[in-house]
Amino acid sequence: MNEITLKQTQEWMMALLGSQGSLEQKVIYAARQANLPLAVLAKDSLESTFYRRLNIYAAGYVIRLVECLKSEYQTLERYMGEAVFVNFAKAYIITLPSTNPSLYDLGKGFSLFLEQTRPAGGQYSSAEEVFFNLPAEIARIERAKAEVSLAKGFEGEIDEDPLILEHLSLFQHSLNVETPACLRLVKLNYPLLYLMEQVALNKEYNMPEVELNFLAFSRVNYQLSILTLEFWQFEFLTICQQESHLGRCIDITSVSSGLEKGDLLARLMFWLPSATTHGLLKVTN
């Protein structure tokens, strides 16, 4: 073989890093993919050294990213146990390799990956179902927390007039609503906050029953803020993430939640002060 190009060399090495199996299997796979046998790349006298040292890169690639996932999904790792977690993390890294210069996106698809790699229905009893369902849901919560810590919050912005939510001002049609970029709304099939607290503390817990529930994650003065929501609150905040006019948000929520507009307004008057205190949104003139 004549000149080996930069592109060929790099595609060979990337194929090696991103393949499954032992180092020997990776080398065979990379040679086939890039049409470059190892001997072409290694100095003859050092071929065995070259081969051994490839493992520093090959093993390091996976271990480094597994460590990164461990740091994002600490409660999930405790829940699954390290060995099981690492197996799934490795499979995720090989199946869906990182494409972003920032590592913050690495774990973005982990919850979906866990969901899609559950055993197919019919392969387990209904009592076992919860064991296979919880990892993806725990991952969604931990991912939401990670994203909340990175996105822009309301910190550093001028506080709104606290009186804006008093004196029936919600009936004013000129008001606007704004949610912070760091707001995350999560719909879950199991109530998990208590279970996750117990797991984090290494304490015993009962497996939860199926119960649709809604959570909001945000930030106040750089501190994580979590609020359990009712369905109409979840709907309202979801709409507020897309629409800035408060009156329209109320109209749309009334339809989607099935609440009479008057009833919804009354509920909002009681709830909005708490929602703003928790950094979920702010109402502005």
């Binding site: 080996i4 930069l6 990337m14 890169y57 390091g60 690639y61 480094r64 990182s98 590592l103």
Partner: peptide
Amino acid sequence: TGVMGVNSHDLLPMPLTEE
């Protein structure tokens, strides 16, 4: 650090050639 759109998040060695 990567090729074919994939980021290894590692500092990988260059072939030290004129190319």
